[in-house]
């Protein structure tokens, strides 16, 4: 049975324990950052920050969402990877750091802006869902450390039930826009959310799309442009020349006769 984690934004208090636990377990270095006028820190996910609490600071209300890899069932990063370095290990989307050539295509393809290229090492990096922990029956570091239970780890089916019920309850309790995110997006996410606002308010795409979804159309449009449309002016110009040379030829032949 696939595992997943459920992130309940109504329980998150932005302590950033998940950020610290992730860095500790995965031995990721700290980053030097600047004060940008927000309590949010560091400013974005990076090759060394695989989970980060995003802040939406609005008058009278702060929204928090732990942003990390969604471990999509249909993963854009995996689809576009030219070397097969990105693959699924059960539900986990993982980058093989030894096969990654650092082309950066996964960075451009991820609909959630999760994958980042390590400028020093050169390879792409992101959350591994603590695969070393979960294959040994231990929950991921972020879920283990979360003091309010905002990040929970478990069977995906159970978490979907739990998330939908929680969203219903919140809608009835004065958060009418609450929605459950991740059940069907990208073929089913393995990071699920209870969001108290629309996904776009939290910086999530309302309708994330697989990077390769219209790939065939895009190939065909390019081929038609070259083979049909752009060939026309060349054909018009050079066909004319052929006619001319035929005329000249017939003149020459006429002369010989």
């Amino acid at each position: 049975m696939p595992k997943a984690r459920l992130i309940d934004t109504s329980k998150c208090m932005a302590c950033r324990g998940c950020q610290v636990a992730c860095k500790q377990w995965n031995e990721l270095p700290a980053e030097s950052t600047e004060q940008l006028g927000t309590y949010e820190n560091p400013p974005e996910l990076s090759a060394h920050t695989w989970i980060r609490v995003e802040f939406r600071e609005r008058p009278g209300e702060w929204l928090f969402r732990a942003h990390t890899c969604m471990h999509c069932t249909d993963a854009s990063c995996e689809k576009v990877c030219p070397t097969g370095a990105i693959s699924h290990q059960e539900e986990v989307v993982i980058i093989d750091q030894k096969t990654c050539i650092g082309c950066g295509y996964c960075v451009e393809a991820c609909p959630f802006h999760v994958v980042h290229k390590d400028e020093v090492d050169g390879t792409s990096r992101k959350c591994r869902f603590c695969i070393d922990r979960i294959t040994n029956g231990i929950e991921p570091a972020c879920a283990k450390t979360c003091p309010t239970g905002a990040i929970q780890f478990g069977e995906r089916a159970d978490l979907i039930d739990m998330g939908i019920r929680k969203a219903q309850k919140l809608r009835a309790d004065g958060f009418p826009k609450t929605n459950f995110y991740g059940e069907d997006e990208m073929g089913g996410l393995h990071t699920l959310y209870v969001l108290t606002e629309r996904p776009s308010v939290y910086g999530l795409p309302e309708a994330p799309e697989l990077a390769t979804s219209a790939a065939l159309t895009k190939w065909l449009i390019g081929l038609v442009t070259a083979g049909v449309v752009a060939a026309v002016p060349l054909w018009l110009v050079f066909r004319r020349k052929k006619q001319l040379s035929e005329e000249q030829q017939s003149k020459v032949e006429g002369g010989v006769k």
């Binding site: 854009s76 576009v80 295509y105 451009e108 393809a109 991820c110 609909p111 994330p208 799309e209 990077a211 390769t212 219209a214 790939a215 159309t217 895009k218 190939w219 449009i221 390019g222 081929l223 038609v224 442009t225 070259a226 449309v229 752009a230």
Partner: peptide
Amino acid sequence: LMTYTGVLLAVSNQSLWAGSVLLPCLFVA
């Protein structure tokens, strides 16, 4: 080859590249 230079960018999640299927058309032209 010409088509691929457009498709490379168009198959992504950057809105300027993937938001219109006509990028390969522009790049081929």
